[in-house]
Write a protein that binds this DNA or RNA. Sequence first.
DNA 1: ATCATCTGCGACATTGATGTCTCACATGAT
DNA 2: ATCATGTGAGACATCAATGTCGCAGATGAT
Lengths: 187, 187
Amino acid sequence: MTSREQIVTAALRRLNEEPNASMAALAEAAGVSRATLHRHFAGRQELTVAIGRLAQERWERALDEAGVDEAAASGDPARIEATLRDLLATLADVAHEYGYALTEHGLESDPELVARFERLEARELALYGAAQRAGVLRDDMPVRWVSNAVYGLLIGVRDSLRWGDVARRDVTRLLVETFLTGTGARA
Amino acid sequence: MTSREQIVTAALRRLNEEPNASMAALAEAAGVSRATLHRHFAGRQELTVAIGRLAQERWERALDEAGVDEAAASGDPARIEATLRDLLATLADVAHEYGYALTEHGLESDPELVARFERLEARELALYGAAQRAGVLRDDMPVRWVSNAVYGLLIGVRDSLRWGDVARRDVTRLLVETFLTGTGARA
DNA sequence: ATCATCTGCGACATTGATGTCTCACATGAT
DNA sequence: ATCATGTGAGACATCAATGTCGCAGATGAT
């Protein structure tokens, strides 16, 4: 791991705890002098964008490994549902590890990041849409609502783990079941 | 409405759009000079805390008007469910109007705000717990997860409205149904 | 008319974070 | 031994946001 990568991951860890940590704090977290931090990243913006990219790569890998595109194209309900559950399970981890990137607003100012975000989101929307057509998800909800609901629940996951409200091994089940069948008791 | 209140509501409106807006921007949004803003609020902290208090008052009113405590104490499933639906509908509005307070981290540094937050949260947790015991909500989920899921979905509501993904008149139904029965199609 | 109060305006001081620079030291390759 | 490279330490400059102050004009009550 290059020192640049070490800095990014250390900064992410620190920012997950304190989103407004100063560059000095991030340097300290990386075990590096402030000057060295600036040698690798011209400014805070550059560093946070690097973190954003890292998060997106992780997200993209989650989509790839779950086989989102193929499942969406297949139209096979069983396969779509399995993929969906698989994806959500992985996204729970991503939310936990990259929570900072999940909630930070400043990242929207980087066009490259925004563009990639939209591509990734589109792939997810395609899966949700396919799930609706295949009868896996109810089709009387806007796809974008479904997407935003997932996003919100992922923030719930992040907070639950942050505050220690829920054990890590339970959180996947809670997320998936809440998303698919809600919190209501079966009639 | 006193000018102090006008400033708070204008600042809230502005911060809902741009959470990092400067004091100068907030003064402008309130149609007031920067000096006048500082005459009313010694610093940014004081202003954001005032906003936080406002949001909490709104939240408290939502709990009161829905009759959360009485419903929880009654143990009556029908009443609890009606109260729950009612509460969520109101909270959707609160999330829309007070989104800034919903996501801003800096508010956690004010002890008074934190204390009141915990009291309000406790009332909600009591309702969720009662709902679980009454068979309205499934009882195999930690109450705190339920609470965090609501919180997350409210962020989903906020974003959906912010980006125009969902019409305001639809969002209540989407929230309530997603929360209670999930996004999955009925088997 | 007079007085109290609030406000806009603009100048000024402060502050905390940020970015830059220099120099000395450590490491490792040749 | 020498050289290249990367780093720590600390001084320094900069900058944007923040907070303060004084003065003059507006408003409104008596």
